[in-house]
């Protein structure tokens, strides 16, 4: 039961993007297309799982004074791996993501989970937590990029969904569109969460 809770909390209850506002930079920057959103989400998932695993394995050996530096070196190594993999296998996506793949190093989700969870818990729970958080992040990216791609160019994953009658909202593909979409999505989610809370307090 505890295992299930650790896994599921990252996806909804404490979703890194919508609930604890971590990792907003890549969330806003790469979500112009669903394809980029998925690629970014998976890259973060990979780095998060690998670094959580290795930090959890070495959690008793790492001296607490230098732990942040050690965490960052582990994370940077995995990010380099992910970046070179993308460059070799999906050069086009890698080009579109640009510097945002190396910027995963300073993505607060990863360092945050390393510090708050992986350095204190066993390998099994750390992995579950990392996978849950990574999936939650990917889910947020997919939600945001679907809205932006659909309104910005009338397509999803490159397939034309809305017909010729649709005039693309150019603004959705540009930076301001990212802020608007995330702000509105966040408030919708808050509304649901608040309603849920009220229901519970009445019952």
């Amino acid at each position: 039961m505890k295992a299930y809770r650790e896994f599921i909390k990252g996806i909804w209850q404490s979703n890194p993007v919508f609930k604890i506002l971590l990792g907003l930079c890549p969330t806003l920057a790469v979500t112009t297309q669903v394809q980029n959103g998925i690629a970014m989400g998976l890259a973060v998932l990979f780095v998060l799982v690998c670094s959580s695993f290795i930090i959890s394995v070495f959690r008793k050996q790492i001296p607490p004074q230098v732990r942040i530096a050690v965490f960052i070196v582990f994370i940077a190594t995995f990010v380099t791996l992910a970046d070179y993999f993308l460059k070799a296998q999906f050069p086009q996506i890698s080009k579109q993501l640009g510097p945002y793949v190396p910027l995963i190093v300073v993505n607060c989700i990863i360092l945050g989970r390393a510090e708050a969870f992986a350095s204190k818990n066993s390998i099994f729970y750390s992995l579950l937590d990392a996978i849950g958080m990574g999936l939650g992040f990917t889910l947020a990216l997919v939600m945001l990029s679907s809205v932006r791609e659909l309104l910005g160019s009338g397509s999803i994953l490159g397939y034309q969904i809305l017909g010729k009658w649709w005039t693309p909202w150019l603004i959705m593909s540009l930076p301001p569109g990212a802020f608007f979409t995330l702000g509105i999505l966040m408030s919708i989610i808050n509304t649901f969460a608040n309603k849920h809370k009220k229901h519970r307090s009445v019952a």
Partner: peptide, 12 residues
């Protein structure tokens, strides 16, 4: 509005 308080309105 209640649901926009905090991060929502800042992003907008």
């Amino acid at each position: 509005p209640e649901s926009f308080k905090g991060a929502g309105i800042t992003l907008i």
